[in-house]
Design a protein around this nucleic acid. Sequence first.
DNA 1: TGCCGGACTTAGACGATGTCTAATTGCCGA
DNA 2: TCGGCAATTAGACATCGTCTAAGTCCGGCA
Lengths: 136, 136
Amino acid sequence: MTRKVVELLASHGIQPSAHRVAVAQYVLTTDEHPSADRVWSRVRERFPMISRATVYNALNLFVEKNLLCELHLAPDSVVFDPNMGRHHHVIDDESGRIYDLPWDQVQVRNIGTINDFEIRDYQVVMHGRRKARKRS
Amino acid sequence: MTRKVVELLASHGIQPSAHRVAVAQYVLTTDEHPSADRVWSRVRERFPMISRATVYNALNLFVEKNLLCELHLAPDSVVFDPNMGRHHHVIDDESGRIYDLPWDQVQVRNIGTINDFEIRDYQVVMHGRRKARKRS
DNA sequence: TGCCGGACTTAGACGATGTCTAATTGCCGA
DNA sequence: TCGGCAATTAGACATCGTCTAAGTCCGGCA
């Protein structure tokens, strides 16, 4: 797994230093949409001497190199999303957690009719409550 | 105009103090989606001794009383939107400015097919470039 | 008129978040 | 081994928003 991450970083033009690999290993495999400081504390669990600046540097570098998306959706959370495929987001009003929703699950019509803007990208942002999932 | 604002505040259960009216007068009539600190500096132009806490208090109160929407869409900007009707947003990648788009301009299908969440609200968030508008 | 109480406002401290800088470390090639 | 460059570091700094404790304003009441 570490090998895969190293290759992934390299293939995006990023020197795979030990610290960067540690950050990547966590942030690329989580689905919890962590904030930068959350990434820091997570990575520190295994890498206690890593500094905040290094984590921020790594995250910003990953975003710049298109390995991560930076999301600005909800209060108190600029957040990182390793899911680079197109998808929508649902924000749970109670917990503040962000969930991914498959691109095909909803469709947006008439983006083409917008005249004043050249739309490069879009997504649907939903707010709601996560349903208590069945036990079945 | 001041009279209208006073009535509006009162009708939402807000004591219309002089400072609150000043904040409301600016934030309810602008379309620039200002950040809280931007509101502060704008209001200070006419009301130089108003403190930051007062502006923040007023804005939070307005949000709580459904006079304003708080938007969390873009980097560096939690932002306030006096347009309480449903609408979508376009973010200009160059300037970072946020524009409103009428609700009818695009349609979203299949929200009803989402099983894991009870969707309370949604909107389409677009990124793009504002076209240089014709001179005609 | 003078006093009281509650709502409003204030300055500034505070905590959280993110950036910057200067110094240090570590690695690699000559 | 040495030199140089990239990566990393601690900590200072800026910004944003909240909180607190004190001060001000104003209406009601004697």
